[in-house]
Design a protein around this nucleic acid. Structure first.
Lengths: 329, 329
DNA sequence: TTATAAATTGTAAGCGCTTCCTTTATGATC
DNA sequence: GATCATAAAGGAAGCGCTTACAATTTATAA
């Protein structure tokens, strides 16, 4: 494969000059620049990335670490990341983590092996900010998406779970239902807990006489169905309004409701969270957050930081929006 | 950040020896190996990837080039790729292409910049095998998934569209409908054409008196709906059996059928192709191909090839399976 | 013991670039 | 036409590794 030297030979120039035109450094005569470009094209030459990096250059690559793509959610974020990385001519080195061990390994390997110029870490629930910094070393900027987003010294993009849940519940309470069920995610889940806070605040602010029950789910369809089924079995009554903390569980609730003679939304209102594809299809009311924008923002953040290491890290919170559809009034 | 020299200094060994233990070359005394490992751990040392590559090593990275993740299909393939790349300790450099220009650029950049040890190229409909080889150069193995899979000299994983369509139609014809509609993909689409061949073969083999119509769709929900709607308008009659060449279009057909008093599957049978998430949810009969396995297979292929450049390229065809659900009898 | 093979470690070149520091070419000024 | 600033190009070191090849140590056998 052609190297810089081949280009030098072909043009009779030195490596310094050729390198300058590759990097667009400007201190080259126009005619020379063209001569070099011509030679590069003829040789089908592309600069070797490893050599560039080693000689003190950049990798033009950002590392993305995210959980396994088990729902459309991450795909959308990825699309956002792709949108801006394409513009910025950045390559994507993507690692999907399945466990804490994986995450640790990926973080170290992306950060300390000189593979990337920056990292976007998504939904890390395993390590605190200090640990992340320690693992990553200090040479490489990191942007966080979601979860552990609250921390100094790192860029982060957060989802406003509180506000989203607040809106969902407020919407549900507009018709003054007598009873409300909150179907949460796992107990130690950060998103879930924030949503719970938002929901509770909305209930309080509505100052209604209402019977609120909380049932713990697991963010999965099946789990949501079971949790709701059991709840209904125990209570022997259906709530008039249900806020499932994500759409997957809302779908589970719907399964149970389908075996009932209750009408939706006339008798029972249901809202989810996530705006997933199936919910969209069947007309589930939900709360959506701008996944694609989140990816874009995070990528923009690191792209800026690569260009200017001294920039102050910033924390950006993304607003959610209510999407009322057929399962609420 | 710690370098090899730091490890040398700490252990009093030469770079050669330390490098040997890093690469597990075996010709090092056990005690020495441990000493080195210890030092590496203490220094939190990781070998610089660029330097390794430059010195003649591997990148431990494979490049993945695939269309924008606009459906669950690619995500599953990606999961398969992840499954085996994780095992093989390979990193993933992923590029999503939006156009022919993108694809060309990604191919060149992944292949000629020394960023990866191998490439997996998915659903390339733009370049023929020769062009791909030319763009990639000869130093790097490429595996193809789908579409242009038929070519010598490159590993490829193909989907047996013919057989899948054959099965779908055969299933549809079991109840001897009087009329059958084939809702195809775009006219120049390889997958679609193969499916059409399979469908036609199945019709022929069934040797029934049947009225077969072909309508061209675009593989999208909306497009499928429209194409079907127009067809129905023209014909002023509904076919008794419909094979939509993918699930998205089948969903579109379903939309139209919903405004009709016909019962499914009693009056009209419908089958799709893809086994997508929504179809799964609503009980659409379909043909599924093992996406995850396809990704795994392709990755295994390139992983083997990296280890042994002389292996003969192989072309593997993956079978589809019929998934009868509620929209067929 | 001593020669000889095998195991272990070291030396140094070089992978393909970038960049600092010089050198040389080109103009501008008086 | 000589002087000096500026633009353009070249020389060479060095980034952090791997790997021939060479040197040394250790084990084995006669």
């Amino acid at each position: 494969m052609a190297t810089l030297y081949d280009v030098c030979e072909k043009t009779g120039l030195s490596t310094a000059t050729v390198s300058r035109v590759i990097n667009g450094s400007g201190l080259v005569k126009e005619a020379t620049r063209e001569r070099v470009h011509q030679a590069m094209k003829e040789l089908n030459y592309r600069p070797n990335q490893a050599a560039r990096k080693l000689a003190g250059g950049k990798t033009d690559t950002i590392g993305i670490i995210l959980p396994l793509l088990d729902n459309g959610y991450y795909v959308k974020v990825l699309r956002g990341i792709d949108n801006v990385s394409t513009k910025e001519k950045l390559k994507l080195l993507i690692s999907f983590y399945h466990s804490e061990t994986d995450l640790l390994d990926y973080l170290q390997s992306l950060c300390r092996e000189g593979r990337t110029d920056a990292i976007i870490l998504m939904n890390n629930t395993f390590f605190g900010p200090d640990k992340v910094r320690e693992l990553a070393g200090d040479d490489i900027p990191i942007a966080l998406i979601g979860q552990n987003g609250i921390n100094e010294g790192m860029d982060s993009v957060l989802i406003d779970n509180f506000q989203g849940a607040y809106r969902a519940v407020t919407h549900l309470l507009e018709n003054k239902p007598q009873s409300l069920l909150l179907l949460t995610g796992p107990k130690d889940n950060h998103d879930s807990n924030k949503r719970l806070e938002g929901a509770q605040q909305a209930i309080q602010d509505a100052s209604l006489e209402i019977d609120v029950k909380i049932v713990t789910g697991d963010f999965y369809h099946e789990g949501g169905r079971k949790a709701f089924e059991e709840y209904v079995g125990r209570q022997n009554a259906l709530p008039e309004a249900i806020f499932a903390f994500n759409d997957a569980m809302a779908l589970g609730v719907l399964d149970v409701l389908a075996e009932t003679e209750k009408r939706i939304p006339e008798d029972i209102q249901l809202i989810g969270f996530d705006n997933n594809e199936i919910g969209q299809y069947i007309g589930l009311s939900t709360v959506s957050f701008p996944m694609e924008q989140i990816g874009e923002t995070a990528t923009r953040l690191v792209a800026e930081r690569i260009k200017n290491k001294d920039l102050k890290p910033s924390s950006i919170s993304m607003e959610t929006s209510l999407i009322p559809r057929k399962t609420t009034r």
